[in-house]
Amino acid sequence: MNPHIDADGRLRHLLDLERLPAERLDALLRRAQAFAEGAQAPSALAGAAVCTLFFEPSTRTRLSFQLAAQRLGAHILNFDASTSSATKGETDLDTFRTIQAMGVRGFVVRHKGDGAVAALAEAANPGVAVLNAGDGRSHHPTQGLLDMLTLRQAKGDDFSKLKVAIVGDVKHSRVARSDLHALRKLGCGEIRVCGPAALLPDDGTLAGCTVTHDFDAALDGVDAAMMLRLQRERMVEGLVESLDDYHRNYGLTAARLRRAAPDAIVMHPGPMNRGVEIADDVADGPQSRVLAQVANGVAVRMAALEALLG
């Protein structure tokens, strides 16, 4: 059984993009585009309570979910693990059940553990929706959706002729995994993955991708370069010799960007390590869509919350 869909065919949870049907993914993108263009749904979640249940730090994801829920008329409860009963030993499941018992209908959950959000979804009462805001290295579905929305806005709906490069620390990146699932579902023509061998997964994640350690070759003629942050908090020491070496081999500079298509766009999920995976003049340059991604995050999260709770 697909955990995303209930017995009536409605979207029940949003846990990943791997198992989300392609038609649902497309519908969410189209609704998000409508919100990005100014569509209003001020009372779609009127009377509903949404909890941002974050066991990991966040800036963009937490704030954009809060703003999205607010724009839809929901009541918002902000959970901070560092000031909660979790510090007294309360389990994640007991925390979830306690807040659920208060009548909360929607949970936006971020967690450091792979599969932790899906485990909470299994404990959800009927009518309660769980939305994955990032779990471990596994999934970050709304980031994948907002990245696809940003690509669509720049390149159109037909991905079949697109060449997209995902560059950097793919091994530790839940964003990269969600982007890869979404790009495949949308029929991307060519997906190139580039990074040091130690930072590329060997678990089948890259099936169907063109894999290279040569950044210059990966950039040749691409329509979009998706740069990834070095996730130093998730990696063991020694995977990268030095930040200077990494920037020299895998940092996106203006000179390197000229290898891409003239109208190529540059993306980054943030937070950026400036001078490591991306240079200032590229991050802030005319081809950058980094702030567009942030703006699209609100629209995508409005669409997801509306679909789950509206």
Rank of each mutant, 00 (worst) to 15 (best):
V290F: 04
A283C: 07
G106Q: 05
K185T: 09
V193W: 04
D92T: 14
L257Y: 00
E56C: 02
V240N: 01
H4G: 03
S160R: 10
D94P: 06
A217H: 07
G204E: 11
G9L: 08
N78D: 15
L25C: 03
D158Y: 13
Q66R: 00
D216H: 01
H111V: 04
G47A: 12
R234S: 04
P269E: 03
T87M: 12
A118M: 07
D179I: 09
L120W: 02
G238C: 08
R256F: 08
S160I: 05
D245N: 14
T91V: 13
A101F: 09
V300E: 07
L308I: 02
S138G: 13
G270I: 01
H268A: 01
D284A: 14
Q153S: 10
T87K: 14
R97F: 02
L67T: 13
H140Y: 10
G189T: 09
G9K: 11
P126K: 05
L219F: 00
F54L: 00
H181M: 11
V128R: 10
A260H: 08
L291S: 14
Q143P: 02
K185L: 11
L309V: 08
G73A: 08
D214F: 05
D80W: 07
L28A: 11
V108F: 05
T83G: 06
V50K: 01
V276M: 00
D114C: 13
R137D: 13
E56D: 05
A22G: 10
T61Y: 01
I191A: 05
Y250M: 06
L77D: 11
I278R: 02
R30I: 10
G115P: 06
L72H: 07
R71C: 02
D158F: 12
R232S: 12
L180H: 05
A133V: 04
R137T: 15
M272W: 06
V236S: 13
F35H: 04
T205E: 06
D147G: 07
A68N: 00
L180P: 05
Q40R: 15
A101R: 15
A283I: 10
D179N: 15
V170W: 03
A22R: 15
L146H: 08
C51R: 08
D169A: 12
P21I: 08
M227L: 15
A39H: 09
A81S: 15
T83Q: 12
T253N: 03
N2E: 11
G168L: 01
P3N: 11
P141N: 00
L45I: 00
A264T: 05
V167Y: 02
P21D: 02
F79H: 11
A197Y: 04
F79W: 10
D114F: 11
G189F: 12
H181F: 11
P21Y: 05
G144W: 00
D157I: 13
L63H: 03
I99R: 06
M235R: 09
T52F: 02
E277Q: 00
D202F: 06
D214N: 14
T150Q: 04
D114W: 08
D179G: 08
A121I: 00
R105K: 15
G204K: 12
L45K: 03
A254Y: 00
D223M: 09
E90K: 12
R232Q: 13
A154L: 12
L162A: 07
D135V: 05
A260W: 00
A32R: 04
L15G: 00
K171M: 14
L219P: 03
G285E: 10
T205S: 15
D94M: 14
Q143F: 05
